[in-house]
């Protein structure tokens, strides 16, 4: 019988992982409680659907339980869960055959969009005058148009706030591949958003 942790909520992640690996189900469930919100929200952003996000969370948790012995603790537990979750997300992308757009080259010298967006440093509320809701919908649509791997890298980096280095661990990509996808995704979104800005801001 595995040694049980008495006070789960105060236990360190490391202690919980050790106990969970030794067979303590309550320790594993505490790890789930601490991380389920992150994975569910990642699922919502990637899959744009509550049911799919819930299924993604469940698949991720069950897979994590089955694979726990393979977790080497080189990265945070949440990073490892993200890696499992993004793999499941890719499987769902493939099933749904979402549309793929061509890459927008970062080397295109003609990119001159959004030139007159007010300098954000010149105002305390630089985007308050924009049609935020409309803009958000356009942004979400544009993010949805990104190829799967670009979209995943972009969401992890620019929305979830993970570093490029952490994303290399989640997605098994080189640092240059991650950065290239970040740059190209931003270039694409910049172009897309520029089309939605009101007259005088474009």
């Amino acid at each position: 019988m595995a040694h049980r942790i008495n006070n789960l909520s105060d236990a360190s992640e490391k202690a919980l992982i050790a106990a969970a690996k030794a067979g303590d189900h309550t320790a594993f469930e505490e790890l789930v409680v601490r991380n389920e919100r992150k994975i569910y929200n990642l699922g919502l952003k990637l899959l744009k659907n509550k049911e799919d996000a819930a299924d993604l969370l469940q698949d991720t948790i069950l897979k994590a339980y089955d694979s726990l012995s393979q977790f080497k603790e080189k990265a945070a537990f949440s990073t490892w869960l993200y890696r499992i979750a993004t793999n499941f997300a890719f499987m769902r992308f493939r099933k749904k055959k979402l549309p793929v757009i061509p890459d927008t080259s970062e080397e295109n010298p003609e990119l001159s969009f959004l030139q007159n967006v007010p300098d954000p440093r010149e105002s305390n509320n630089p985007i308050g005058h924009l049609k935020n809701q409309e803009l958000k919908i356009r942004l979400e649509n544009a993010i949805g148009e990104l190829p799967d791997l670009y979209k995943t890298v972009f969401i992890l980096h620019d929305i979830e706030g993970y570093s490029a280095g952490e994303i290399t661990q989640m997605l098994d990509l080189s640092l240059s591949a991650v950065k290239s996808r970040i740059h190209r995704s931003r270039a694409f979104l910049r172009e897309k958003v520029s089309e939605t800005l009101p007259p005088g801001v474009q």
Binding site: P120, P126, I127, L135, K136, L139, D158, I159, L189, V193
Partner: peptide, 20 residues
């Protein structure tokens, strides 16, 4: 101009997703 627009894009993203 490119610099300003890239900075604006990232601010817009933060603004749109900060309470997500």
């Amino acid at each position: 101009a490119l610099y300003r627009s890239m900075e604006a894009l990232l601010l817009l993203l933060k603004h749109c997703y900060c309470e997500e």
